[in-house]
Computed example of a mutant assay.
Amino acid sequence: MKYLLLPVLLLWGMGVGAQPTRPADYGLKAFSINDNKLGRINFYVDTMGLFKKAPLFIDINGSGGLPLCIYINGKGFGAVSNTFDPNITAKTKEKYHYIILDKPGTPFCDTITTLQSAKEYDLHKLIAGYKVSDEYTRRLSLQWRVEATRKVISYLVKNHFWDHTKIVAYGYSEGGQVVPALAVEDKRITHVVTIAGSGLNQFYDNIAGWRIKAAKGEITSRQAQDSINASFKNIADIYKNPTATNKAFDGHSYKRWASFCAVAPFEQLRKLTIPIYMVAATDDTSSPVYGLDYVLLDFIRLGKTNLTYEPCVGCNHYLTSIDNGKQVSHDYLQKILAWVDMHRQ
């Protein structure tokens, strides 16, 4: 499970004020809800026809406590990168209200400073060193993301943003696991879209990964089994301490892992009768395709027909593939929007 880090915009010799670092720079208006249980929930709505009733398109992004906008303050340059896709706003705002939430305790935009020049710096290394907030670590869980999104939907309904037609829950990576849980809990959701999400327990991905490496001859069977044994020890400790935020595994708190691995996503998905669109990347090492193939298998077994399953052949976690030595990006959004129009409840 990862965040989607979009291409950097380089703006040479300019101050932070000239960069697209505010919600308004992306055509978004900021809102917030203070909740006794969940804390402060910050969310953003596109400004086109802001106070007109419309269907809702809720964008639920990937994992990690990164801001939606990151400003790199480097030596002689400034750069902005996003962990959400502004192109989604552009393609949905005419027919929908586009909505996206911050993670708990996370600002819309934050600055990372480096003494390196534009030619020297490595964006991914800088991002890897970003320190998430204590509130993010304390609060982030599958339940927080589901309940916070439900609060936002209720706010939008109460304040007459929704036209009482469609609410599309669109989730990428970790968000692809949030959306089925959200739809099970909130019957106002009319369509679920899961992109490079999960089908099986996330812990199983690492276990199967070691087996695959052994089968390919990259490591020995003994090495694979030793690694799997160590994984099971970690997993057992997480399930014994499911609310711990002072213990971490593979970059996430125990609380985060235990919440997302409490129920396998296919078990949530098969409860749904609303239309589901699922994109699986066949060369994805973060959200392996076999877990998503299992969802289709389970739907066939049950005779359920509400799943549209779309494998992105040769694609990685970011839906890019290599064709004749060139990187090709695959954008499913227009197809998804057409699918939503065709699949009414």
Rank of each mutant, 00 (worst) to 15 (best):
A181M: 01
A181H: 01
L182K: 01
D186M: 01
D186R: 00
K187A: 13
R188C: 07
I189E: 02
T190K: 01
T190N: 06
H191C: 05
V193D: 00
G197M: 06
G197W: 04
S198Q: 12
N201Y: 10
N201H: 13
F203M: 13
Y204C: 12
D205C: 13
D205T: 10
I207Q: 01
I207D: 00
I207C: 01
G209Y: 10
R211E: 12
I212Q: 10
A214R: 07
K216V: 07
E218W: 13
E218N: 12
T220P: 04
T220C: 08
R222T: 15
Q223A: 10
Q223G: 06
A224K: 03
S227P: 02
S227R: 06
N229L: 09
A230L: 10
A230F: 09
A230W: 11
S231P: 00
F232Y: 10
A236P: 00
I238Q: 04
Y239K: 05
P242G: 03
T243G: 10
T245P: 03
A248W: 09
F249N: 12
D250W: 09
H252D: 06
S253M: 07
K255Q: 10
R256P: 00
R256C: 10
W257S: 06
S259N: 08
S259F: 06
S259H: 09
C261M: 11
Q268R: 15
Q268N: 15
T273V: 14
I276F: 09
T282W: 12
D284R: 03
D284K: 05
